[in-house]
């Protein structure tokens, strides 16, 4: 993200958020990949979960969730027993590790709505969006599976834009602010 600020000569700074006090200092939040159960636990234990929810209620924060972050933005999961407290930002249902285990992790090209050229996406133990409703807009499908969606200024992707040099998704998110 800092590369986008630099290359596009925009003012802004990407910072690493680890504590509750950091939440209030940002305009937008990227929830990265990792393990959704782990990230969820850190968010809840640190109080960051409530802080983000408060910002969402005031409608003054943009959110982007990649992979595990995509899981956290969902309204519901296919696996209702999962130990994950969702942020419930987007009208969508998500299936965790939907492609299977690490053996099934893969790279492939996808088409994204509004992008003129295809996008090379990296899926690592990736979730998929199994269902959308309400104001949720589908932005991309890999084969039959929904892998990118947005609602208001919330963006969810089941792949990892931070692992490639293509900055189009970061720019797209900045424009949503």
């Amino acid at each position: 993200m800092n590369r986008v600020f630099q290359e596009d000569q925009k003012t802004g700074k990407a910072i690493l958020i680890r504590q509750i006090k950091d939440i209030d200092s940002c305009d937008a939040l990227i929830i990265p990949g990792g393990e959704s159960t782990t990230i969820s636990r850190i968010l809840v234990n640190s109080g960051m979960y409530d802080a983000i929810r408060r910002r969402m209620e005031n409608d003054d924060i943009a959110l982007m969730g990649t992979c595990a972050g995509c899981v956290l933005l969902a309204k519901e999961l296919t696996d209702t027993t999962a130990d994950v407290k969702l942020l419930e930002a987007i009208d969508m249902q998500v299936e965790r590790n939907a492609f299977g285990r690490q053996k099934e992790s893969h790279e492939r090209s996808i088409r994204i709505k509004g992008f003129t050229e295809s996008y090379h996406a990296v899926f690592i133990r990736a979730p998929i969006i199994t269902k959308t409703w309400g104001d949720c807009e589908i932005l991309s499908k890999a084969g039959k599976e929904i892998v990118m969606a947005r609602q208001k200024n919330y963006l969810a992707l089941s792949f990892h834009p931070e692992l490639t040099d293509d900055l189009r998704i970061h720019r797209f998110f900045l424009e949503m602010l």
């Binding site: 053996k103 992790s105 893969h106 690592i124 133990r125 998929i128 084969g143 039959k144």
Partner: peptide, 19 residues
């Protein structure tokens, strides 16, 4: 799930290091 597998690449360095 049913997928278009013709263009998928598994087990690349990017995937391994990304994991």
């Amino acid at each position: 799930k049913e997928l278009d597998i013709t263009t998928m690449r598994h087990g690349t360095d990017l995937i391994k290091r990304g994991f």
